[in-house]
Computed example of a mutant assay.
Amino acid sequence: MALNPDLRAALATLAATPHLLVALDFDGTLAPLVERAEDARALPASGTALRALAALPGTTTALISGRALDSLRVVAEPPEDMMMIGSHGAETWTGPDGAPLALTPEQAGLLARAVDVVERTIAAHPGTRIEFKPAGVVLHTRTATDDVADSAVAAARAGLEDLADLSITDGKRVLEISVIKADKGQGLALLRETTGATAVLFAGDDVTDEHALRTLLPDDVGIRVGPGGTAARFTVASPEDFSEVLSELVSLRTQVHPAN
């Protein structure tokens, strides 16, 4: 991919910031989308670039994902000190001193009722499946036919109508249900504050990433990976193209802040 000149210029400006935060979605951004979520892995070029960025002075790397943190650790294989936001902002990992997620009894009861709705939905819709998260449950429809997927989402939404205080979000062939109202924008704000970043690169491919993209400041760079309406200043077509963006950022940042 020939890098967009405007994007390269924005990366060059970003690379000169004193403390850079590179916070990235995983599925569809660092890793191509796959039918089985557990099979996803970051593209080698992206993984190499992210490790190189993490080794540079004044540079923090982080992952902001819809996955639960335990799932994200398995597929992303992050270094122990990498900050992570999981479950669309409901789970955070900023270091070993951070408190684990704990639900109130009311939240736990609400989650159990939501799980029951999704379990009944997948039982009636072949090709759909369920994913359990610490603060939520997910209906996956990627392996179902389009008509079955549409019917499953409609059935799940209908079953959840009477359950108040749920956060329900449509993603790429998923319906995310959480008992904690959080999003990636809130997660990115936490990372920015925790690291003291002077500028941020954020990239994502799904509607849930738009929450983070809409929080970016003038000195930040937002990138949408793949098609779709977006608040990002820049778009690239695929995770493979985004690998080139990361490699370019490594080169530019190294010139300004060489590794020790």
Rank of each mutant, 00 (worst) to 15 (best):
T145E: 15
A76M: 06
L63A: 01
L111K: 14
R51N: 09
Q107K: 08
L50M: 14
A102F: 12
M84H: 09
V22A: 02
A40L: 11
T92Y: 11
P32M: 10
V225I: 12
V137F: 12
A152W: 15
A12L: 05
A259S: 13
H140A: 05
S87P: 07
D205Y: 08
L7W: 11
I85K: 06
D6P: 02
R113Q: 14
V148P: 09
F234S: 02
A12W: 12
A9E: 14
L175C: 03
I122F: 10
F234Q: 05
V138K: 14
A108E: 15
L249Y: 04
R233W: 09
V75N: 09
V117P: 09
L217D: 10
E248D: 11
R224M: 06
E35D: 14
E80G: 06
E106C: 00
A164F: 07
D97M: 02
R233N: 10
V74K: 13
V174S: 07
R214W: 03
T104E: 10
L201A: 03
E193D: 12
A154S: 13
A2Y: 10
A144L: 12
L43V: 05
D183W: 08
L63K: 01
R67G: 00
T92H: 14
S151E: 15
T143Q: 15
P32F: 07
E77K: 13
G229M: 07
E210G: 02
V250W: 01
E161Q: 15
R51T: 03
A68T: 02
T48Y: 07
H88R: 04
L7R: 10
D220E: 06
L3D: 05
L14M: 10
L249E: 04
L72Y: 04
E193L: 03
G127L: 09
R214S: 10
P258L: 03
G127R: 11
A31G: 03
T104Q: 09
L166M: 09
T141E: 12
F26Q: 03
W93H: 12
A149V: 07
E77D: 15
A15C: 04
E240Y: 13
L69C: 02
V207G: 11
V200K: 04
S251V: 11
